[in-house]
Design a protein around this nucleic acid. Structure first.
Length: 355
DNA sequence: CAATCCGCATGATGG
DNA sequence: ACCATCATGCGGATT
């Protein structure tokens, strides 16, 4: 088992690369009670794998779960696949306040739930899509982009019961989101053209009805951070039909390191006038590329682009922290290589990381 | 005038 | 064979 570190607030508040949820008031009390007997500061921060950027909100796993599990056992809490003893880098302890925030031990937590979602995902291949319409929303900026695989299963499960609450996806700060559509990115989606073609039927059923070819502007926010992008949702004429596209996606693709095979998913929130969210599901990267190199790629963002108010760290500070981080990652990778070589289990350490 | 953007056309694919 | 979808090509417009 990895060692644990004391959480030091100043080390995280001074960096914009740790975008924690802005609110702590909506924590799930039922979930909290299930872990209330745990000692203070006994949360385990899973390390980041090759597709995880440190800019994203890092989940904490209840230490109780981690210590009770066997090496090689798989967790999902609430959305990060995590295998004991198979992840690299160091865990961290969190403050009491952050513990409270992370006591969201809901259905995502257990392996049972994970298996359930896998089964539902497989069922999705032969199910028709949700007929719930976006049309009830009149606000143009109420949907979010997200890239989150597991929520698809919940979306599909709701197909069987239209009366069921469609807002099944919970963000770390407990916002409730509804799945709208998912797109696996192609070469032309991640190229320099800065546009992403959306699936027509899902777009027409779940996104706002476009009255003209100019389309509408939308603002999307990362489910797990506060980072936002401004895009345009519009259509092109194609024969007698339409092609629906998202435009101004260059920065979105670059900063998230999106590549062919990655996926994005659109969400809306239940209030329909507040939330713009997204997160990312990335495909597995080749293991031969050094970890620190992959993470550096993700962290090399262009700060000249749209910058939200919460991102107040200067570029120099960020680059300095990046350099330090790279060095730490390089050192950690060496350690991991040594420790992984001695693991008794033969499972794979590769996971699709949900950002 | 070159680079980029924009929007339609075209072809591959699958039902 | 026909049709719908969609990835991408490509030419005109704009910067």
């Amino acid at each position: 088992m990895d060692t644990f570190f004391t959480y030091t607030p100043t080390t995280t508040t001074n960096t914009s690369t740790m975008n924690f949820p802005s609110t702590t008031t909506n924590t799930t009390t039922a979930a909290a009670s299930s872990t209330s007997s745990m000692p203070s500061s006994q949360y385990y921060f899973p390390p980041h794998d090759e597709t995880q950027t440190l800019m994203q909100f890092p989940y904490a796993y209840p230490l109780e779960l981690v210590q009770a599990g066997q090496q090689g056992q798989e967790f999902t809490y609430p959305s990060y696949p995590f295998v004991i003893g198979m992840n690299s880098s160091q865990p961290h302890l969190v403050s009491d306040e952050q513990q409270q925030e992370r006591r969201l031990v809901d259905a995502w937590t257990t392996k049972v739930a994970r298996c359930k979602r896998k089964m539902a995902r497989q069922k999705s291949l032969c199910l028709t899509k949700d007929s719930a319409s976006w049309a009830s929303s009149t606000q143009m900026n109420t949907q979010g982009l997200a890239v989150y695989d597991a929520v698809d299963a919940d979306h599909v499960q709701n197909v069987n019961n239209v009366n069921e609450d469609p807002y099944t996806f919970r963000t770390p700060d407990n916002k409730r989101l509804r799945f709208l559509l998912k797109k696996e990115l192609k070469n032309s989606d991640v190229g320099s053209l800065g546009r992403i073609v959306l699936p027509k039927r899902e777009a027409e059923e779940n996104l706002p009805i476009l009255s003209d070819k100019d389309g509408i502007q939308i603002v999307v926010q990362d489910v797990y951070s506060n980072q936002v992008w401004i895009m345009k949702y519009k259509y092109w004429l194609n024969n007698k039909s339409r092609m629906y596209v998202l435009e101004n996606t260059v920065d979105f693709v670059k900063q998230n390191g999106l590549a062919i095979g990655d996926s994005i998913t659109l969400y809306e929130d239940e209030l329909k006038n507040l939330g713009q969210y997204f997160s990312i599901k990335k495909v597995e990267k080749p293991v031969n590329e050094p970890l620190y190199k992959q993470q550096y790629t993700n962290l090399s963002i262009n700060c000249n682009n749209f910058s939200a108010p919460f991102m107040h760290e200067s570029r120099d500070e960020e680059e300095a922290s990046l350099a330090l981080l790279i060095e730490q990652l390089r050192h950690q990778e060496e350690q991991d290589a040594n420790s992984l070589a001695t693991l008794p289990i033969g499972g794979t350490s590769s996971h699709s990381r949900l950002i």
